[in-house]
Design a protein around this nucleic acid. Structure first.
Lengths: 204, 204
DNA sequence: GTCTATAAAGTGATAGAC
DNA sequence: GTCTATCACTTTATAGAC
């Protein structure tokens, strides 16, 4: 023991507070990057919103790119829990339900739309993240559509891989148009329309 | 005559040079904004690429946002001429041909993809431009699909407006995925796949 | 029209007191 | 852990000589 004893019950105090701080920072980073993009949003903007100095914030996330990656991962953790709710649900039902839910949280859509396109620019720290995300989505949807095809529920001539890529693209593109014209574009209806095209009417 | 005479044949000299300069600047701006986005690209970057000082450049375009709008308009003028070539061609043929052509000029796709998403951020000067562009595209494609529907060439149940929105969204989303994984994503094939879904096989 | 010089503000990041 | 102070740099934009 080089320093004075630490009471057992107090151990988690600082950890809990530290976690709370991290959470506040990530929440602020999410809002700032969604509204201004990664390049357009500054550490000062995030710190102001989180209610602390910019240097204190850097104690938790040592660089701006660290903060971006942490914000993206954090959002994944949250939406990952929501995705778990789709177990047992059909591919189409899960996607349409999520699209409807997303209309209530435009900040999340804005974050992904803005950062995704920004990530294709020179030296953007989010590029690997979005590349991997797209690969994962394409693989997942291809499996889902192939499973439906095995049940004979997919229109003949539809290629599962191509339909999966198209479904991801359609969803993202619709969200972009929706952000610019929310009263004109109906994301969920268009996605349902696409499923109506690739799926055959139920047999029973 | 307050100053010395201007020879008639020399009149267009300075205008021609000025136009050449403007063109070089717009070309550089296009490349820089495509590679780094509007917020990520600086006036110095553009000036360096155009081969002049940053202040000289501001003589032609007095502010950064002026430069962005001019670059967008300039590209419209060029692609507008290419679009004129689609007159008399079918909607699908024109779109697929353009998509194939675009694969050869990734910088153009990058510019639109990056700036379009960036334009939904706070106070972005390109927002009105992209909002108007989407409205124009949706209207144009809706007309094209409705015309095909009138000929009985569209699958029953397909709504022209919804299909037009979806077509624009699909194309944009495919280009984003293509920029991140050009060897995996086939934009033209997916677009053809969508037309196969909404169009009926030819009768003859 | 083009330049140098510079203003005026903001950037991400570091040092070190407390 | 949190702060002030500050570094080293970049940003857009202006003033004015030539």
């Amino acid at each position: 023991m080089t320093t004075k004893d630490t009471p057992r019950t107090g151990r988690r105090g600082p950890y809990a507070k530290s976690e709370e701080r991290r959470r506040a920072i990530l929440d602020a980073a999410h809002a700032v990057f969604a509204a201004k993009g990664y390049r357009g949003g500054s550490l000062q903007d995030v710190a102001d919103r989180a209610g602390m100095s910019q240097t204190s914030m850097l104690h938790y996330f040592p660089s701006k790119s660290d903060l971006l990656m942490a914000a993206l991962q954090w959002r994944d953790d949250i939406t990952g829990r929501a995705d778990a709710a789709t177990v047992g649900e059909g591919l189409m039902e899960g996607i349409v339900r999520t699209a409807l839910y997303n209309e209530g949280i435009p900040g999340v859509i804005e974050l992904y739309t803005v950062l995704c396109a920004e990530s294709v620019t020179e030296g953007h720290p989010g590029r690997a993240y979005f590349t991997a995300r797209f690969e994962r989505l394409r693989t997942s949807y291809t499996r889902g559509i192939a499973a439906l095809a095995a049940e004979g529920r997919v229109r003949p001539g539809v290629d599962p891989g191509q339909a999966a890529t198209s479904l991801v693209a359609l969803w993202d593109g619709l969200q972009t148009q929706w952000l610019l014209a929310p009263d004109t574009v109906d994301v969920a209806a268009c996605l349902r329309g696409y499923f109506d095209l690739i799926l055959l009417p139920a047999e029973d």
